[in-house]
């Protein structure tokens, strides 16, 4: 019968005694230390489960303990006398193939959560929140932008009134109390452009108004921005970004400072993916709007391609970069034949 080297601790003091354990054929576990010999029935003894190659502990009923360094010897010893019951976790943790499977499952789960779970959750949360949740956020953004990106519009007073009236007309059918307004601004920095702020403000630049050859083109652009507002993209975007950071932090976990920084990075990478999904959704809204109001779909295609020409010669990393390839979007409008009569 093989004996196992161990340390014996009585549980009352920090005294340590070199000891050895052996199992008798009668089923008794015998512990020898100094000149003492104690016998325990095997059923009364508990063993700590195996975890990596860490020391194992044998717990006796009287609170005393043995510490054993040789894991394999102990496992062989146990295998002879009692079937392994609770070693499942160790089995999973010790085999490369299980770890590999766990890695794949985790990767798929994390990817699915980020690609579908977080957007779906953000969507239902955003629609459940009252409309004024985003107002403060949007107002702050507007103030900041007015400081360095936007300047008062130089369009004639009359033209401004006309465009605002047109926009007011467009939002008649949206939920009451949403408070959507159009603001006109001059901005040399971002050029011909329009954006929707979470608070319900749509900003259109003078440059955009001048670029348009037909007012219906502007209506098309405004419909796209209205889509952003109606689908609450601003709030959903904010929720999604923090959701992803949370998921990643939960997985990478407890090396606090490191993971916090590391968690921020994938968020940046995902930004582009998330914004693209929003652009497509807003385009669909615009498409629907144009159809129901009998405006030719090619108006949107026209202004898009003119915007692209304009932007490609100065700034390729600006506003358009987060949009899906503009060509595809233009095609989507030109190809739509579902209500053929309007498309001409």
């Amino acid at each position: 019968m093989t004996a196992l080297d161990a340390y014996f601790y009585d549980g009352k003091t920090s005294n340590r005694h070199p000891a050895y354990l052996h199992l008798q054929s009668s089923g008794e576990l015998v512990v020898n230390w100094c000149d003492t010999e104690i016998r325990h029935s095997l059923e009364s003894v508990k063993f700590s489960s195996r975890l990596g190659n860490t020391r194992r502990l044998v717990y006796f009923l009287d609170g005393s303990q043995c510490e054993i360094a040789d894991n394999d010897a102990l496992d062989a010893f146990l295998a002879q006398h009692q079937p392994q019951a609770s070693a499942l976790a160790h089995k999973l943790e010790s085999k490369v193939i299980y770890a590999g499977a766990a890695l794949i499952i985790t990767a798929v789960a994390v990817w699915a959560t980020i690609a579908y779970g977080v957007p779906a959750l953000a969507r239902s949360v955003a629609f459940a929140l009252p409309a004024n949740t985003e107002r403060a956020l949007g107002d702050r953004v507007m103030k900041t932008l007015d400081g360095f990106l936007f300047f008062p519009s130089k369009l004639p007073e009359l033209r401004q009134k006309e465009l605002k009236a047109k926009f007011a007309q467009m939002v008649v059918n949206t939920k009451p109390g949403a408070g959507y307004v159009l603001e006109l601004r001059e901005s040399k920095k971002i050029g011909a452009n329009a954006l929707a702020l979470p608070s319900g403000i749509v900003v259109m630049t003078d440059e955009m108004v001048q670029l348009a050859k037909h007012d219906e083109e502007l209506v098309a652009v405004l419909a796209h921005e209205l889509g952003h507002l109606e689908y609450r993209h601003g709030l959903r975007h904010a929720l999604q970004s923090s959701g992803v950071a949370l998921v990643i932090a939960a997985v990478v976990g407890d090396i606090a400072s490191t993971s916090a920084i590391a968690a921020a990075l994938p968020t940046v990478l995902l930004e582009a993916k998330y914004s693209r999904a929003f652009e497509i959704e807003a385009d669909k809204y615009a498409l629907q709007y144009l159809k129901t109001n009998n405006i030719p779909l090619k108006r949107f295609a026209d202004i898009l391609s003119r915007m692209q020409d304009k932007h490609s010669d100065n700034d390729s990393t600006g506003f358009l970069s987060s949009h899906p390839a503009t060509k595809e979007r233009i095609q989507a409008f030109l190809n739509d034949r579902s209500t053929g009569s309007n498309a001409n």
């Binding site: 990596g52 999973l92 085999k95 490369v96 770890a99 766990a102 985790t106 789960a109 997985v251």
Partner: peptide, 9 residues
């Protein structure tokens, strides 16, 4: 291995 099995489970 312990970490990834923990997360997966």
């Amino acid at each position: 291995k312990i970490w990834i099995v923990n997360i997966c489970l």
